[in-house]
Design a protein around this nucleic acid. Structure first.
Length: 428
RNA sequence: GGAGAGGUGCGAGAGUGGCCGAUUCGGACGGUCUCGAAAACCGUUGUCCUGAAAGGGACCGUGGGUUCAAAUCCCACCCUCUCCGCCA
């Protein structure tokens, strides 16, 4: 969501800045709605002022026991007029807010131009690919042979794009969650949260999933609640409609949650294995930052996510997403991509974004810089989030990068304490 | 799920139709006093929209309605608390 006043005064410049991102915005409707709202608001406020003073006049007459019928009649007519105008204003405002909520965020000036993932720019690389030329098995082959990934039974229970983890597989997933949470809370200063996994409309509108992307979400129709597609939703909404104290910023939170996505429109993509599921586990990082420091915070948050891969010894790279590849709400995004030997390529395992004030404006998350001061003003915070990391895909990377010639999988050392000392996954 | 009570500013809590954006107490902030502090006393202290400013407008859980006029009356919904039922 953007500042509508700014938008009104700079509509053309704004369109240019938004570029290709604004291709499906209904600009003429938007411009018309803004103008209409302004006219109606001014009228309603003027009439209401008359109504207010007029009513006081009536009160005076009645107290003085003077006839007030004429005045009452005039005021009644005025009241009816106001009611009609207010109806119109309500309709206009609803239309305007729906239009405005569908405008994507403005990209930061440092974001590379481009349309697709091919235009993303590699920023840095860490580690080396294991030497598996020609022998790399897929995580699914490994997992099924080892008896730790079971797709067939998941289909029976829920259908396509679900997975059952079994034995050491389930243990590995749990170990990863604990390892990540411990790292972020003990070493990176995040506060651990265990949030609700369902969220209401207001929460999802605040972070930007609604109104535009409702078809991507699982929904409980009876209650009008949605299964969260990421813990970003509950974490960011922790402070919705709040005014935070400026000297407490940044506020950093981490949470494990399962994530639920309908994956509408991705039929045929990544149909095998754990890469793209309707339900997956993720440890999320969220930060509420002072606007002046949010880009430093983005670097920090990204490095916090990278630290997980470094400690696990997984080869990866970081790319800066180009304008065309960024999500709806982001101003700038780094994707962390982990090396998958079987695909001979890097695959996304984390996405770290600065949303600037986009979500904060939608959610009413402000801060006061000098608390207690008379002239202190409130300002929108900047919100950031990133995966720290997608747990399922981390497991995929471990299986593939740590696979041995004999079909077993070594456990990264950092993880062994979380696996009861287990050093290797073998067929059992 | 059933019965009852209630949702007001940072917190407690008053306000049952007009003079209420809202009494009071507490907290916080500033000041007086003090070597310093406590106490006491004085003052300040909600958010948003509009406007260059003066000013104007909105907000008392949310949304409707009644009325010349609504925090106050009516309706619906949401939420909280207590009791009962059910349940991990």
């Amino acid at each position: 969501m953007h500042d509508l006043r700014y938008l009104r005064d700079n509509l053309d410049a704004f369109r240019v800045q938004l570029g290709a991102r604004g291709f499906d915005v209904a600009w003429p409707d938007l411009e018309k709605s803004i103008a209409e709202r302004q006219t109606l608001t001014t009228q309603v406020e003027q009439y209401r002022h008359h109504l207010k003073t007029g009513s006081e006049h009536v009160a005076k007459l009645k107290r003085a026991q003077q006839p007030a019928d004429d005045a009452v009649a005039t005021m009644k007519a005025l009241g009816d007029r106001i009611k009609a105008l207010e109806d119109e204003l309500r309709t206009t405002e609803a239309r305007l807010s729906d239009l405005a909520l569908r405008i994507p965020n403005l990209p930061h000036e440092s974001v590379p131009v481009g349309r697709t993932a091919d235009d993303n720019i590699e920023r840095n690389r860490w580690g080396t690919a294991p030497n598996l030329i020609g022998t790399a098995r897929t995580h699914l082959e490994l997992g099924e042979t080892l008896g730790i990934i079971d797709i067939d039974h998941a289909v029976k229970i829920a259908g396509a794009r679900f997975a059952v983890l079994s034995g050491a597989g389930a243990r590995l997933e749990r170990a990863l969650i604990n390892f990540m949470l411990d790292l972020h809370t003990h070493q990176h200063g995040y506060r651990e949260i265990l949030p609700p996994f369902l969220a209401n409309r207001a929460a999802l509108t605040g972070t930007g999933q609604l109104p535009k992307f409702e078809e991507d979400l699982f929904r409980s129709a009876q209650d009008d609640l949605f299964l969260i597609p990421t813990a970003e939703v509950p974490l960011t909404n922790l402070h919705r409609e709040e005014i935070l104290e400026g000297d407490k910023l940044p506020l950093r939170y981490t949470a494990y949650s399962p994530c639920f996505r309908r994956e509408a429109g991705s039929y045929g993509k990544d149909t095998k294995g754990l890469i793209r599921l309707h339900q997956f586990n993720k440890v999320e990082l969220v930060s509420f930052s002072h606007p002046e420091r949010s880009y430093d915070e983005l670097e920090r948050l990204t490095s916090n996510a990278e630290a997980v891969l470094q400690q696990l010894g997984l080869h990866y790279r970081v790319v800066t997403l180009c304008v065309g590849d960024m999500g709806f709400a982001a101003a700038k995004t780094y994707d962390i991509e982990v090396w998958l030997p079987s695909q001979n390529t890097f695959r996304e395992i984390s996405s770290c974004s600065n949303f600037e004030a986009f979500q904060a404006r939608r959610s009413g998350i402000r801060f006061r810089s000098d608390s207690g001061r008379k002239d202190s003003r409130t300002e929108f915070v900047h919100t950031l989030n990133g995966s720290g990391l997608a747990v399922g895909r981390t497991m995929v990377a471990i299986l593939e990068q740590y696979q041995q010639a004999d079909g077993t999988v070594r456990i990264p050392e950092a993880l062994r304490p979380y696996m009861g000392g287990l050093e290797r996954i073998e067929t059992t």
